[in-house]
Simulated assay, not measured.
Amino acid sequence: MSAPVTGCLRVPGASLHHEVRGRGPLLLLIPGGAGDAASYDGVADALAAEYTVAAYDPRGMSRSPLDDPGAGQRVADHADDARRLLDLLSPGEPARVFGASSGAITALHLLTAHPDRVARVVAHEPPVVEVLPDAAAHRALVARVQETLRARGPMPAMTEFAAGLRKDGDPAPSQAAVTLPPQAAARAGRTMANLPYFLGRIVPAFMSYAPDLHRLRDLADRLVLACGEDAHGEPPHRAAAFLADRVGTAPAPFPGGHVGLTTHPEEFAATLAGHLADPAARD
């Protein structure tokens, strides 16, 4: 794996650690969950054969500290961070953007707020549960997670959150099922340190986000809504598929489940590359 060039971008209220490798048109990778730029290590080199690949730690995560550690979070601010990175790394040229999970929500808002900066967005299972008919049940989950975080701490709260994102009736994963590949295990310490911030401020802000459906419908030719092939029935998959239907596109199947990026990196990178290509090149 080639070593990325690292940098730090000052933005209002934070400093953003970012990593760049490859050459060609810019592809910005937005992490989701409690992850950071390293969550893309398994796919970045493959994509860097065709693109200048940039990944970063979202504000408040890992190496991107907030000026005010207690500051509340808004999707719009995270999307503006992404826009500022595009301005830095691809000035004047619309870029391709991929986001996973909560990072996919950032990517959706980036597309609607700054369409001039975006050539194509691939949003993998954005948990925009506010679009679902059972949105109230997901609001109740977020409230339970917040209460568990306050009363018992981040690990029980994460267990509560993960259970709420499984398909009804699915058992909790066995220890063997969640064994991490070596690259993922190496970054596990930072991910664990990010959990209180993720659960306490990212989860409530992002899972209450309602996308602008009319705006997304107008921009649907630039949008791919990706769904994990093994995630049918899970809330993020349901939300992405429902959103695709509402904006008039077909959901795109991707390898694995909600974390297919980690569990199936080679297949995931190849699938993503296909959806990033210009339509004429795919025909």
Rank of each mutant, 00 (worst) to 15 (best):
A76F: 03
S174M: 12
T191L: 12
V142H: 09
A135G: 09
R139M: 01
L195Q: 07
G164W: 13
V97P: 08
A151Y: 04
A140Y: 05
D80L: 11
D170P: 02
T112D: 14
A157W: 04
P156R: 02
A177T: 10
T159Y: 05
M158K: 04
H109Y: 13
M158G: 01
A107M: 05
T179V: 07
D170K: 11
S90K: 00
E160R: 03
L180F: 06
D170G: 02
A177N: 08
E160Q: 11
A137S: 13
L195V: 02
R63L: 11
A185F: 11
E125C: 01
P173W: 15
D80T: 14
A104M: 03
K167G: 10
D77Y: 03
V178H: 12
I105C: 04
G72A: 15
L149V: 01
D67Q: 09
P154W: 00
R152F: 08
T106R: 02
H78G: 06
G99I: 07
M155V: 08
P115V: 10
P115C: 01
A185P: 09
I105R: 00
L111W: 06
P196A: 09
P126W: 10
E125I: 01
A163D: 14
L85F: 02
G164A: 09
A76D: 10
S64K: 00
F161W: 12
D67C: 06
L141T: 03
E130M: 07
L111A: 03
L89H: 11
A163V: 07
A186Q: 14
P173A: 13
G72Q: 13
A186Y: 10
R84S: 07
G72M: 14
P127L: 00
G164R: 05
V131K: 07
N194L: 05
P156Y: 06
H109V: 09
A107K: 13
L165Q: 08
Q183E: 15
D81S: 00
R63C: 13
T179C: 06
L66V: 01
E160V: 11
L108M: 03
L165A: 06
F161Y: 09
P171D: 04
A71Y: 01
H138Y: 13
E93K: 01
E130S: 02
T179K: 05
D134N: 08
A104I: 09
S174P: 01
V122E: 01
S64L: 05
L149A: 06
T148E: 14
M158R: 10
F161N: 05
E147I: 02
R117L: 11
